[in-house]
Amino acid sequence: MTSLTQPFLTVDALHKSFVLHGQGGMTLEVMRGLSFSLLPGECLVLAGPSGIGKSSLLKMLHGSYRVTGGRLRLHFDGDGEEDGELELADLPAHAWHSLRRDVIGYVSQFLRVVPRVPAVEVVMEPLLACGVEPDEARERAETMLARLNLPPRLWSLPPGTFSGGEQQRVNIARGFIAEHPLLLLDEPTASLDAANREVVVGLIEEAKARGAALLGIFHDEDVRERVADRLLPLEAHMGAVLEAAESPSEEIR
């Protein structure tokens, strides 16, 4: 990181709307004019009720949603000629592969994996993608799963049949294991008991200590108060304005 006072992420006048062609081309605006910045080692918590665009913001930062308007920039160390600034809004698709592997980690609300893959391999995968040797990756994955109190008898089983809380812990282990410098957390503690929420708070504190920037959604007030350095209220940027289409969109079949 450059210095602790330089932001790692800056967002300027972010705008997001969906055009629903199946609904006569209706435009659904979910976010407008959002600007903020995030420092290394800082955890910013998105605040506001459901449907206000918290997950949409994380998905735009992860490249899963396209950006309708505004800028999303990461600030890397420059090397003399280049200033190290990377604009995410218009990044070509193939550039996201490396960015997701090395820089931006994402803990989603739901685990989505190939059906028969054992839990421990699901967790190892981000490390293997970075070129970590399989033995070391397995050891680190097992350490992480043990820390999240997932019983060892489950490690070699595919998580498809696990309980919601068990699946979520596999998901958290997978999200934290590669130690990305930017972590996007979509309600990681939603279906966890108190002991495991405690473990997640510990993981977040460690990530902050190593200089990672975190952006998260936490509905649990206790967790939120403990991990948040700042709150980012989204109410003022809520769109949710429905606009009729100017002209009917192309009729499909």
């Binding site: 969906f18 062609h21 998905k59 490249g63 899963s64 949603y65 396209r66 698709a93 192309e250």
Partner: peptide, 19 residues
């Protein structure tokens, strides 16, 4: 339409992709 897999599946832009 073309793009990242999750972009296409989670935020499809074209009327046909949405369908």
């Amino acid at each position: 339409e073309s793009g990242l897999t999750d972009q296409i599946l989670d935020d499809p832009q074209h009327a046909y992709t949405q369908l």
